[in-house]
């Protein structure tokens, strides 16, 4: 598993380095670009963890959509020149972050994390490797690992539209509500009465806002 280790540490250098850049660099636009690097590296981890679908989703939604939204916000709020100043809470923030890191590292190192006996873990790992490469069934049988994969039973979509269909629908409604809320927040205010009389442009603008309002209702 040397190859996986190398990939893991390369990704770690990219992810942690870029994440530090995001919070420390002064230029907001560069911070947003570094954030894209973190997202792509996290997608790499997902591939490493046999979560191919999530890796694709990560690149599409995070590196594609969310980063574009954030870059739009950076551009539209013209604070780019002003940069990214720290506030007065610098020292307490560092202290609190260090404290939390120490606590998390202690817990992670102290806990017994191996859930399976060593032999069983090897066979599960072999089945996982077989899913993405072409190990023959005979090899699996010899290792005593055939038919042991829990992944053979149900897939991601079976769970999503089976047992978890209610959260799935709730999340859909949440997305719709967020969409309508964002529209209602950024639409222009209805123009006051005298301004409407002064120009056709503002009148059409307020009519557009009214239409958006009725749509949101």
């Amino acid at each position: 598993m040397l190859f996986q280790d190398v990939v893991f540490w390369l990704l770690t250098v990219v992810a942690v380095g870029s994440a530090l850049g995001v919070v420390l660099i002064r230029d907001l636009f560069r911070a947003a670009l570094l954030l894209v690097a973190v997202f792509v590296a996290v997608g790499g981890y997902f591939v490493l963890l046999n979560a191919e679908f999530l890796a694709v989703v990560q690149v599409l939604i995070y590196a594609g959509a969310i980063s574009v939204l954030i870059i739009f916000a950076v551009m539209l709020t013209r604070d780019v020149q002003q940069g990214n100043p720290p506030n007065r809470l610098q020292i307490p923030a560092v202290a609190l972050a260090a404290l939390l890191l120490a606590a998390l590292v202690t817990v992670a190192v102290d806990t017994q994390w191996s859930f399976l006996p060593e032999g069983e873990r090897q066979s599960v790992e072999l089945v996982q490797t077989a899913a993405v490469s072409d190990i023959s069934p005979e090899t699996l049988e010899q290792a005593g690992a055939a038919g042991e994969s829990a992944a053979q039973g149900v897939g991601l979509a079976d769970l999503l539209i089976g047992r978890f269909v209610l959260p799935f629908e709730a999340v859909s409604v949440l997305l719709l509500a967020a969409l309508i809320g964002a529209l209602a927040l950024v639409r222009p205010r209805p123009a006051p009465q005298d301004a409407r009389a002064s120009g056709a442009e503002s009148a059409s603008e307020s009519a557009g806002a009214g239409a958006a309002g009725s749509e949101a209702d």
Partner: peptide, 27 residues
């Protein structure tokens, strides 16, 4: 596969960096 504890340490590091960003930045 890489040991679980490494992923947890990595996750802790990213989380703490994010926490610092939330607490200490103005924008």
């Amino acid at each position: 596969m890489v040991d679980l504890v490494w992923f947890q340490l990595l996750s802790a590091a990213l989380f703490v960096i994010g926490l610092y960003g939330v607490l200490a930045r103005r924008s």
